[in-house]
Design a protein around this nucleic acid. Structure first.
Lengths: 338, 338
DNA sequence: ATGAAAGCGCTAACAG
DNA sequence: CTGTTAGCGCTTTCAT
């Protein structure tokens, strides 16, 4: 049996092509009995509308593009999962498009994707959310898009973010309450602003507790395990070394833990360690890592919803959603000497 | 400026639409000077062919579908990366389609995706590579597809696999050479045959060294960290416990390491641990894990090539590619007492 | 509530 | 080597 077309369905149901189209697209103004007839014909012929034909006619692809440049497999997978969840419910598919945030041709490459009518809209994740040229290019070309965790130019499009600076603040407060005063901090990659700005939470907590910010306790990391280990090596070699280290993400925190192991420093007896993200390594490491969990899939799912709403023309203004992080206390933090 | 169409380009270049089409699709039989004229017009108008129009006319979407049901984010990301690499070079895009291998409607759901003309072909990854109903359904519907690491029904389609049973054999031999005789084994998820069959390599190595297979040393794992930890708990509680444990993947090996830490068993002095896959946790854990690295992205890239070749009708028979694993010796294995 | 006609922008088949 | 003619299977617009 050859693939059935809308004409075959119309003929079998004894209606016009347009009526079948109405039923398929759940448009109103179809009598219930007519709809039933059509649906029976669809079932009998196993009719599936051709996406290419409807894309061409309607000038919409029913495909969304997910853009990312993130070395964390877990982050990307969670985003994909969340985005797909909403896509499926709404009848969209998802095209993935990893790219390089430092590629000069990034904006034109992405615009080309849209101009080929491949995707109806885009989802941007950090650090792409903060690439001004890309964001401005999309706005100028009137491409519908949403962003996850943008830190700048927030009126450009709908977005979803977490209160992660607040979580970094809370985490730092917890360490202070445990009695720590010399708290090392490993900052996130400067290009990755959402991570980099977790530093603000750390700083605010110290300030509130009237602990002077000691610049020798703050080292630059680059989100990788290796950079975390290197940062830890620097901090732990200090004459008066910190009693706690807060890394801006789990990979770097894992690096801190390994470096401490290799130096024979006991965690948490001699050093508390905290991370951020709750990646799998956080509980696969010894001791398990105190960290912050972000609802990444939920953020992506919500962002995709905002995008689809925008595509349907329902959005007059640019909505935004803020979601909450959760601190997970595990084995790697505690009072000194315990 | 409205989006330029092929007619606009043809008009500007002073040729027919068909000639533009030839240039765009790099077909032969176009005079160089004509091609140049056309390309100049394309550049001037910033013409990008509409994918929907060409899909409809040519009955091809230039999109491939990637099917997976794998809890390992790293595996999936590597597969995506490899597949995309080939896709880009060949002018294809990639649609991702996670699904559940135990879902009864899996085959019909996937066939529906193809019938909507969304994808021209499919890439199946473990454990989907071994879902007979899906594989047979695709063959029956004459859908072009390729598989990664299939263990059954190998003539059904082109495929790519590694010599991982051989690698498991080599790893076991290495442990034996280090003096281990009581080597525990944590088997992979039974639904995930490619992983499960690593056991064969372990068994073969023991046999060759005339070490009797002790069934109490083989426990069933399910590929997860937790199942690895549970398996290790069982093995390490044995009266005569193993001096080495080989887990069928890194997540389970990480579970072994954590369980050993909690029991105060020193690695590798009292227990050697080996894993499989070389996921990030393998070097983010203490001690770092001896493991096997598979060229996952390369496999996916190669598989995608085979698929595209098949789409172009170039493949008469079903080709297969076998790639090599590499053993990475790290800190977690050694001689007893060292 | 339903239908008829006119494309969407391209490729395929054939003609020259 | 290049052009002409027909669709691909839908949605849209406008009738009825």
């Amino acid at each position: 049996m050859a693939k059935a077309t809308i004409d075959d369905v119309a003929a079998l149901a004894g209606v016009s092509m347009k009526t079948v189209s109405r039923v398929v697209n759940k448009e109103p103004n179809v009598r219930a009995s007519t709809r039933d007839k059509v649906q029976a014909a669809i079932a009998e012929l196993e009719y599936r509308p051709s996406q290419s034909a409807r894309s061409l006619a309607a000038n919409r692809s029913y495909v969304l593009g997910l853009l990312y440049d993130n070395p964390s497999a877990n982050y990307v997978i969670d985003v994909q999962e969340g985005a797909l969840e909403t896509c499926r419910r709404a009848g969209y598919d998802l095209l993935i498009h990893p790219c390089r945030h430092d590629e000069p041709s990034l904006a034109s490459e992405v615009l080309s994707l849209v101009r080929q009518s491949r995707v109806d809209g885009l989802i941007l994740t950090p650090p792409l959310s903060d690439i001004a040229e890309l964001v401005e290019g999309l706005v100028a070309a009137q491409v519908p898009f949403v962003r996850l965790s943008p830190t700048e130019n927030k009126q450009a499009c709908p977005y979803v973010q977490t209160n992660d600076q607040e979580a970094a603040y809370d985490m730092t407060c917890q360490l202070i309450e445990l009695g720590h005063e010399r708290i090392g901090f490993i900052a996130g990659h400067p290009d990755h602003k959402a991570v980099a700005e977790r530093f603000k939470g750390y700083r605010a907590a110290l300030k509130e507790s009237r602990i002077k910010l000691d610049k020798s306790l703050v080292v630059q990391g680059y989100n990788s395990f290796e950079s975390g280990r290197a940062g830890a090596a620097q901090l732990l070699a200090l004459e008066s070394r910190p009693t706690a280290i807060f890394a801006s993400n789990d990979d770097m925190a894992a690096g801190v833990i390994i470096e401490a192991h290799h130096r024979g420093i006991a965690i948490p007896r001699e050093l508390s360690v905290a991370g951020f993200d709750d990646t799998p390594v956080a509980h696969q490491i010894f001791p398990s890592l105190t960290t912050v969990s972000q609802p990444i899939a939920d953020m992506a799912s919500k962002a995709t919803e905002l995008l689809i709403k925008q595509l349907k023309g329902k959005a007059v203004q640019m909505p935004a959603a803020i979601m909450s992080c959760r601190i997970l206390v595990r084995e790697s933090t505690g009072k000194l000497g315990k």
